[in-house]
Design a protein around this nucleic acid. Structure first.
Length: 195
DNA sequence: AACAATCCCAACCGCGAGATT
DNA sequence: AAATCTCGCGGTTGGGATTGT
């Protein structure tokens, strides 16, 4: 498999934080032409960035559906449940949290929840010898995060076909925030199999 | 007030895998 | 069938913001 030549260091590409002007250029371009073809996008849009960087900026920050700000306790609970079920499959977890990105959830987990889980684990060590590793969720988690359904390992596959879903259609089938995590994973599994 | 330590998060990097040629 | 292209994922890092001394 060939590595992407995108972002090769000899190119005169800008790195680091995005400016408001760059954001505007990217938003305007995507508004007119849509996204996809990330590799050529910066050239066409007139940005001195690599396609990867543009994609990341759009998906994690500029996208119209991005919900920024505090993660609610409901969302937090769902993240914990899904992480118990799926492990570090951030994109799958993000898929169940409308408006949240995998990067945001990953950051939130690494900065808040992993610490808290560790504290809980330490606390529970006093009463149990079980040790649950978040990196290996197929092992039984320690209470209070014990789950009573089997772990389902799903395979995330990419969808290369562009789907044009308008916002109205999207809103008509909202993703329930606190849906049954096992059903969610099963759904992902069947979606993956269909592709 | 000044400096150090820690936290937080946007962005980067390397890799795997599907699509295309 | 093999080589190459492109995308998306998860781990990691850089640096600004905040907190502690």
């Amino acid at each position: 498999m060939g590595r992407s030549p995108c972002c090769s260091k000899d190119e005169d590409l800008k790195r680091g934080a995005w400016t408001a002007e760059e954001d505007k250029i990217l938003i305007d371009y995507i508004r007119v032409h849509g996204h996809g073809r990330w590799r050529n996008l910066p050239q066409k849009a007139g940005l001195k960035r690599c396609g990867k960087s543009c994609r990341l900026r759009w998906l994690n920050y500029l996208g119209p559906d991005i919900k920024r700000g505090n993660i609610s306790s409901d969302e937090e609970e769902l993240i914990i449940r899904l992480h118990n079920l799926l492990g570090n499959r951030w994109s799958l977890i993000a898929g169940r949290l409308p408006g949240r990105t995998d990067n945001e959830i990953k950051n939130y987990w690494n900065t808040n929840l992993s610490k808290r889980m560790k504290d809980n684990k330490d606390h529970n060590k006093e009463t149990t010898t079980s040790s649950w590793n978040p990196k290996h969720p197929q092992t039984e988690p320690t209470p209070p995060f014990k789950i009573d359904f089997p772990v389902i390992r799903t395979k995330a596959t990419k969808c290369s076909k562009q789907l044009l879903i308008n916002n109205n259609a999207r809103q008509s089938t909202p993703v329930p925030l606190l849906l049954d995590a096992s059903a969610a994973a099963a759904a992902d599994d069947s979606e993956a199999k269909q592709q």
